[in-house]
Amino acid sequence: MDYIIETEDIRKRYDDFLAVKGVNLKVPEESIYGVLGPNGAGKTTLISMLCTILRPTGGRGTVNGYDIVKDARKVRESIGIVFQSRALDDILTGREHLEMHAALYGVPRDIRDKRIEEVLDLIALGDKADEYVKTYSGGMKRRLEIGRGLIHHPRVLFLDEPTLGLDPQTRESIWRYIEKLNREEDVTVLLTTHYMEEADKLCDEVAIMSHGEIIKADSPGNLKRELGADTITVRVDRAPDFYELLQRQDYVKEAYLMDDEVKILVERGENLVPEIVNLAARNSYYVRAVELEHPTLEDVFIKYTGRGITEA
C-alpha cells in the first residue's frame, strides 16, 4: 500500500513540555484518516508540523513524498489546510477569498475562474458568493474554508476539527461533503477530531492519540472488533430454556438470563443474528425481538487510554 503521509518518530518540544512524543503515522493514499483524541492530546501540533507551520524538534516526516522540513514549500503547494479556528476576512466576499487563495497558490490565471466556479458549485454558496463573509452562517463559513483549501487541487487536505462548534445538521452535511470530495476528487483527507461519532462515521482509519502519543491505529470497525464483544439481546418465550440452548453454542462467549431476555456476548454479531433466529425457529421458540449492540469507539478509547475522551 502507498502512504501519502509518513512520519518517523516525529517529536515537538515546547520548553520543557513534550507536546508530541515520537509519533509514527502512516496515512494511505486517498483515504480519510482521523486523528482522534481529547483537547490537549497534541493533535493540532502534529498536523501543524505536517503542514510545515511548526518545525519538528526531532524525527522526520514526508507529505506527498516531500520532506516537511527540507521541501516545506513543495509540501505547502500540494496541500490544503482548514484551520480549527476561522481564517476568513469579514470584509471580503466568498469569491474574493477564493480568488486570493488561487493567486497565492499559483493557480494559472486562465483556469482560475473555472476553478472558482467549480468550487462554488461544490460548496453551494449560491448567490451568497458575492456577499461579504460577515453575512454568512457558521456552516457556510466552514464550507467556504474547505472549498478554499481545494482551489489549487491539493493531493492532501488537512482539516483540524472540521465540525467543531457546528450544529448536528451542519455537521452531517460537512461530513457528506468531505466524503464526496474524497470520492470524486481523489483527495486524501487527514482530519483531527474529538468527536467519536465523526471518527466512526467518516474515517477509513483512525489513530487514537493521547498525551502526545498514538496509542493505536486501525479502521474503526477493527478497533471495535478487537474489543470483542457485540451484545445480542433476544426476547423469547421460555427464556430459561433458550438460555440453556444458547450456552451450548460455541460462538457464544458469555450468556446472561434476565427475565424474558437472554443477553449474549459474541464476535461479529451482525453475522450471528440470522443464525440465532434460525436456531430458535428450529427448536420452536418464538422470538419477539432481537437487538444488536456494537461497542462504540468511546469504549475503544476508554480501553486504550483508561479514560473517556471528555475527561481529558
Binding site: R76, S85, R86, A87, L88, D90, H101, L104
Partner: peptide
Amino acid sequence: IDRQYGFLKEILVAPI
C-alpha cells in the same frame, strides 16, 4: 487584528 480573527494564518501558510 488579522491574527486575532485568524486571517493571518491563511496568508502565512501560503507558498510565497
